[in-house]
Design a protein around this nucleic acid. Structure first.
Lengths: 123, 123
DNA sequence: AATAATCAATTACATACGTAAACGGTTAAT
DNA sequence: ATTAACCGTTTACGTATGTAATTGATTATT
């Protein structure tokens, strides 16, 4: 089952560092998101049901660990967008961002480097 | 207000060619999506309420035209993903696809061309 | 004129989502 | 032993979404 946007915010905390307690997660996202304790608890439970996180008892509380890897999530989301909007092809997407003036100098430099590397490993 | 995935499928039909009647839209997406007439009608109504499409009476039926431009939608969605998952930067996204082996020969060629053009217009 | 066909608009309904309050059990303090 | 504190689980509730059936109005047919 897909994980929602709010759930992804919680996953992000766990991807940065795990395991974590609910309290720690709340401390990290609560203020920024304007979320109460109950909200984070609910999201954690939904993530548990979706088997995106694992909970291990540690005395009175639980320690949460991500089961779904960030790479896996990023992959699904990215591929979804690519397929839905760009016919599954990367170049058109980059062209889009280029036209949208979303390519920074740094991006351009890094893309050059990437292409060069791809070229090198060609043989 | 954001338009949903099912709604976007209808928009896609209108982006390919407009104006269109509900019947034409159904004919184009119904079979592929397994949607009944009522489904397409509902989606059209939601799009109307969201002011993503415009309907103009044509005798007994309506002709639907997109108000939201495809470019605008693509832009929102793409920027959303970029910001949520790649810190708003394009190069990391392309690197991701590269690592995921999602870069075809054609993509690579087109990216080279794009970079060259960017270089040229530099001065 | 009465009836049937055609469409769009309204209503329906189950599930997901965002956001949280209430409940309950276990541990800690009095 | 009671009571209080803590923390996870359950329940809640409004809105969105996917998917349609029903209704109602207008036009066409008999």
């Amino acid at each position: 089952m897909a994980i929602s946007e709010a759930e992804a915010v919680v996953m992000d905390v766990l991807w940065r560092a795990a395991p974590r307690t609910a309290e720690e997660i709340l401390a990290e996202v609560g203020p920024a998101q304007g979320w109460q304790e109950g909200t984070v608890k609910s999201l954690l439970n939904r993530l548990l049901r979706k088997e995106a996180v694992h909970a291990e008892r540690d005395g009175r509380r639980y320690l949460y660990t991500p089961l779904l890897a960030r790479e896996q999530y990023v992959q699904q989301e990215s591929k979804g967008l690519l397929d839905r909007l760009f016919g599954g092809r990367v170049a058109p997407l980059v062209v889009h961002f280029s036209e949208q003036r979303k390519l920074s100098k740094k991006d351009i430099a890094e893309l050059r480097k990437l292409l060069k590397e791809l070229d090198d490993e060609q043989h």
